[in-house]
Design a binder for these strands. Sequence first.
DNA 1: TTGTAGGCGTTATCAA
DNA 2: TTGATAACGCCTACAA
Lengths: 362, 362
Amino acid sequence: MAPEKKTRKRKANKAPSIYDVAKEARVSVFTVSAVVNGKSHVGKALKQRVDAAIQKLNYRPNLLARSLAARRTHTIGIVVPDISNPFFPLVVRGAEDAAQKHGYNILLCDSDDRPEREEECLEVLMAKRVDGILLTKAPGTFRPALRQLIDDAKIPFVLLMRTYPDLTKDAVLTDDYKGAYEAVCQLARAGHRRIGLMGGPMTISNGRERWKGFRDALEANGLTHEPELVIQGDYRIESGYRGGHALLSRSPDGIYVANYLMTVGLLKAAEEMGMRCPEDFGLVSFDDYPWLAVFRPRLTTVELPKYQIGFEATEMLLARIKNEPTRGGTIKLAPELHVRESCGFQLRPGKNLADVRNEARG
Amino acid sequence: MAPEKKTRKRKANKAPSIYDVAKEARVSVFTVSAVVNGKSHVGKALKQRVDAAIQKLNYRPNLLARSLAARRTHTIGIVVPDISNPFFPLVVRGAEDAAQKHGYNILLCDSDDRPEREEECLEVLMAKRVDGILLTKAPGTFRPALRQLIDDAKIPFVLLMRTYPDLTKDAVLTDDYKGAYEAVCQLARAGHRRIGLMGGPMTISNGRERWKGFRDALEANGLTHEPELVIQGDYRIESGYRGGHALLSRSPDGIYVANYLMTVGLLKAAEEMGMRCPEDFGLVSFDDYPWLAVFRPRLTTVELPKYQIGFEATEMLLARIKNEPTRGGTIKLAPELHVRESCGFQLRPGKNLADVRNEARG
DNA sequence: TTGTAGGCGTTATCAA
DNA sequence: TTGATAACGCCTACAA
């Protein structure tokens, strides 16, 4: 028996494949592939036939199949603690813009800063064969099996906002030490002496950095470090609220809060306690937002370049993916102090702080 | 010549495949597949051998290959105008939670409300064979070729926040008409008579709905509709800022703003013009956020259940994907009025509005 | 219950 | 320049 030529089933009301195009144009699939990808040189005539067939069938390559064959998905994963924390949307937007510029897409995951969920996210991202991962590391270290998986996959990671040296040195951070240092100096400059800290988790690198900046700034300003004025939160509103109650009851005259959500919680606590900012306490917060310029109290903040973080991290990741001779490593972006009323800068030296407060009250 | 048995190359320092597991466990790939997917009944002994092999090799199925074969990616696409608009993160979070619950992931795209970008997003999502798409439609209609693609792909869509009947009736919306109506009624209740609108684009369904609600509420309260007090923006800060300057210069005593970002812009304009809220104009805004309860002016808002929008839309989409006998159709979620000081409710009837204003000024 | 072999839609290798 | 055909890694009839 003569071996019949293998025939592909003709499409039955499903999306056309490269075979359908090849048949329509009376060429081989190779030729179609070459035309579609602009590789190899295809003769004018053939190319036109192929283009016509593509047009006629409204053909679009199946990127899944392409990814499987080419071992490249043109998709990157991004794991953030919580996209609904207003800090991250701009980071993600920066990442998306950079990715899109290079023809990549973004698979988004929220870890809620929980190690188990983070692990699930990473597993599925790797199983879906993303080309690289942007990670804002949750507290804790990877389990060995996961670590093994990551090593086997040889997939590049770039860290966002938080270090995790065991995994990689490639990271885009902000200079949190400096930011916190400047925040506290601003409070000191405004005349505050008993300065409290509503800080982040010490299990997170930037929680530690911000704490160090706070501590060193106290010292540099000749202020004493009072342990009871230091509270550790988890960057969520609720912890800022509870911490705010505790902290404010100890009457600090200035407070540095390590992120925006905790500031919101703390202000709620202040209100419940009938304490006003900046009349009763000065405040400097991390993260700035457009609306902070129009609401009162107008917050003095240390702005972090969120968009840039996402954008540069993605550029770095793509460079790794494409194996470009890259300066990877750790990038530290500069924070920027936005001075507004909440720090109490109106209360300048020369005027006694207590007096000004009484005026404000009266 | 005896046909040699087809042999798969052994893994050379790359992720183990189902073949490697099969070899290790001395079974066929079918058995491995059956064990991994929990289908079919596999004998105790074999199952144990397979499990051991999986463990030993730290095997994870390649989801790309699975998707190609099973024609199901367990990934859904979501297209929003801009994830950095604070309205959308919670929507996306709701979608992610629902998706994750069912073992799905999310591919995120920003359209910037530009039709060309929206088209690119949709094309690539479909090319990557997502199982379904959540879409916040940009203004304008689809080009025929895109429409063709969508029809050919037979992929389910669920619309978010904005209708587009030509595509599908499946949508999760908010009752924007009612929300706007109530917002304006609240302004009227607070004693305002010349009420202005800082609205959204009339090219977007909810822009029209909110406008209608505004108009009808004016009429229901016996107020006249003054065209010069109606301004159309695009839901961005900048348009609220420009519109705010224009609108405030016409001295309305109450303003309804159709979204949060435009409110931020309008408040900035007010500040530049030296006008205070609520003393100089009452304000009701759409969208609520946790921080609006702690900053001044405390905004009266019409809250939209953002998280629920994303969550329910995803549930609906997944029902379609799984071909469940579903009540699809259009869901309208109820908005919720949060009354705070910005609307001027302190200025109750009985007290003359102008008088109260003078008090506040004095 | 378990194995064999073909298909999913590309890319990539090697001849022609 | 082109074409035939084997990967890519998994699922799934159909057989045994």
